[in-house]
Each structure stands twice: as structure tokens, then as C-alpha cells.
């Protein structure tokens, strides 16, 4: 029974998200919001790895998201659709169901490779160095795309709608929600495993005392780069999903404002709390949607609400705790490997 806590949770949320969409009980708008929530969860959870667990300060998550968004959209649009950018489709539409997830994966890999270029010089010194470099990355990404006229430059890129449509024509199924759901589960799964293993937990040690970590045999430089690439790769996959959800992207979609939103969700949830990240991504996305009638004032109300929230809860919603620390009774269903091992030893 204890071992099935996680699969049960995943199964239930799968049913809640996908079946009603499949049966058409959810309007397109609600489906859109669900996808957006999923994307934001991936972004928040992945950035939490760097800004929360590792205690570094990356402000360029949107740029890595953008790399993934452009890579995967270019791929699907180039391969599957007739479009003003590349002309005729190369592969038949029927392959869209297969190509789409592959393109997401390639988008993630592209973002991870891009992040490696950033990470190698960035992690030589500590402090706010990464913040500065990643801030510059926002500008560099936006400027670079704006200067590539072949993919629309500042006017943006589109055609992903056709790809999504092609998938739907083939098999009527909420494909976007489905893949978003899978990647959300995948992100949470690997990050949770990582930070609960001796190897991954060492990033918390780095946050706590980097010199002590290095002297206790932790290869801090390697670990930081690996964590950064992991995080940015997930952001790239989220970007691919985002591009196919909104069906029109331009370089400004993945600029500082988007980076700021991801940061806000991370700190709102709490540094180093996965469940906090999930909760805050859900709340924040819904809040933004609910404030939509306010029009321009939405952009005033959101930061204002957050400032007030920070004043009352300066550690975010969850602090560094997990939901399980709040409900200790549930703990036995979801405890991590290390906790189980330790407890087994204490008992014996």
C-alpha cells in the first residue's frame, strides 16, 4: 500500500485533467488554462532546482524556454506543414503524433546545450555572477532571434496551430494536455529523485556552504553545471509545449517579463520546496487569469499582491518545507528512499 502513494496520485490527476478534456466536457479555454498551468509547473519546478535548492540566482529561464520553443516549433512547422517560412511539408501529416514529442525533446536538448555554454564560464565564481550572465542571456536571445529574418525576426513565428490540428485530425485526443501532463510528471519525478539522492542533495550542501562541500569531496563545479543543464533542458521542453499551445511566438514572449514570472512563482512557492512550486504555479496562473477583466490594472494588481504576500510570508507559501511536512500522516505513503533507509536503520 505504502509504495502506491505516488502512482495513485498521478493516476487520479491524470483522470481529472485528461478524461474530461477528451470527452469534451472542458471548453477550449479551460483546456488552454490547464496546459498553461502544466507548463508553468515545469518551469517553476525546474527553476527551483537552481534558485531554490542550489541557491544560485538565474534570471534567464525564459531565454532557455525560448530556445526550446523556437527549436521545436521550427522543427514541426518545417517538417509537417506548408508554411510561408520553408515552403512545402517534408513529411506527411500523419507523422505529427510522432514528430511532436520528438521535437519537444530536441527543444529540451537544444536548451540544455545552450545552457552549457552559459554555465561553463558562469560557475567559476559565486555570488550574483550567474544572475548577471543570465540577465544578459535574456537580451542576447531576444536580439539574436530578432536578427534572424528567415524565422520572422521581431515579427514572430507561427504555424504550430496546424501541427496541433493535424494531430487532432488524426486521433481526436487532447494531445497537448496529454504531453504537458507527461512532462510535468517526468519533471517532478526526476527532480524529486535527484534532490533525494546523495548526489543531488549535494546541491543543498553547496547552497549551505560551498567550500565545505568542495572539501568533503563534492565536485561542486560539475554538479552545478549538471543541475543547471537539467533545469534548462526542462525549461526548453516547457517552451516547446508553450509554443504549440499559444501557436504564435515572438522573441518578446521569452524576455525578462516571462523570466520574472517564473522567478515569482519559484519564490512564491518557497525556495527548495517542490510541492510549493506546484502550488504556486497553479495559484499564480489562475490568479493571472482571474484578474484578466482588470485589463491593464492586472499588471498593477499582480505585483502589488505579491509584494503584500512577501511582507506577510517572507519565505514563500511553503518555505523550504514540503507538503508532507505539513501533513506528517501522509508521509509514510510518499517518503523518499533515503528517509526509508534511515528509518529502517534506526528501527533495527
Amino acid at each position: 500500500m505504502k509504495r502506491f502513494g505516488m502512482p495513485a496520485l498521478i493516476g487520479i490527476s491524470f483522470l481529472i485533467c485528461i478524461v474530461p478534456s477528451w470527452l469534451g466536457w472542458f471548453s477550449n479555454y479551460i483546456q488552454f488554462i490547464i496546459t498553461l498551468i502544466g507548463i508553468n509547473i515545469i518551469l517553476t519546478v525546474s527553476l527551483n532546482l537552481i534558485n531554490g535548492y542550489m541557491g544560485e540566482f538565474s534570471v534567464g529561464h525564459a531565454a532557455f524556454m525560448g530556445v526550446g520553443a523556437y527549436t521545436s516549433s521550427l522543427l514541426t512547422v518545417y517538417l509537417l506543414t506548408e508554411n510561408p517560412f520553408f515552403g512545402k511539408a517534408i513529411l506527411p501529416e500523419e507523422l505529427s503524433i510522432l514528430i511532436f514529442p520528438i521535437s519537444l525533446l530536441i527543444g529540451g536538448v537544444a536548451a540544455a546545450i545552450f545552457s552549457l555554454l552559459i554555465a561553463i564560464p558562469s560557475f567559476r565564481t559565486r555570488g550574483d555572477y550567474l544572475a548577471i550572465v543570465t540577465l544578459a542571456v535574456n537580451f542576447i536571445f531576444k536580439s539574436s532571434i530578432e536578427n534572424i529574418d528567415a524565422i520572422g525576426g521581431p515579427r514572430g513565428f507561427m504555424g504550430m496551430g496546424k501541427v496541433v490540428k493535424a494531430m487532432d485530425n488524426l486521433v481526436s485526443f487532447p494531445w497537448l494536455i496529454f504531453w504537458t501532463f507527461l512532462i510535468v510528471v517526468f519533471s517532478i519525478f526526476i527532480i524529486r529523485n535527484f534532490v533525494n539522492s546523495t548526489m543531488g542533495k549535494s546541491i543543498i550542501a553547496i547552497r549551505d556552504d560551498e567550500i565545505a562541500s568542495e572539501l568533503m569531496t563534492v565536485n561542486t563545479r560539475w554538479l552545478k553545471i549538471v543541475a543547471f543543464m537539467l533545469s534548462c533542458g526542462l525549461a526548453g521542453m516547457a517552451g516547446g509545449l508553450h509554443a504549440h499551445t499559444v501557436t504564435f511566438i515572438n522573441p518578446s514572449s521569452y524576455f525578462i517579463l516571462q523570466s520574472t514570472y517564473i522567478l515569482v512563482m519559484v519564490y512564491l512557492g518557497g525556495m527548495g520546496s517542490l510541492s510549493g512550486s506546484v502550488i504556486s504555479a497553479v495559484l499564480f496562473t489562475i490568479l493571472l487569469e482571474m484578474l484578466r477583466p482588470l485589463d491593464v490594472w492586472r499588471w498593477v494588481a499582480t505585483p502589488l499582491l505579491l509584494i503584500i504576500l512577501m511582507l506577510f510570508r517572507p519565505t514563500g507559501i511553503m518555505g523550504s518545507r514540503e507538503l508532507l511536512d505539513v501533513f506528517p500522516k501522509l508521509k509514510k505513503y510518499f517518503s523518499s528512499l533515503q528517509e526509508r533507509l534511515t528509518n529502517a536503520f534506526i528501527k533495527s
Partner: peptide, 17 residues
């Protein structure tokens, strides 16, 4: 210089890196 945000057992585990 123990890692104060990690439990004693985690402190020892991580030194196994």
C-alpha cells in the same frame, strides 16, 4: 562548518560523494 540545513545523516551521506 557542518551543513546546517541538512540532517546529521545527510551530512555524512553527502561526504560520500
Amino acid at each position: 562548518r557542518l551543513w546546517n540545513e541538512l540532517s546529521v545523516i545527510d551530512n555524512l551521506r553527502i561526504a560520500h560523494f
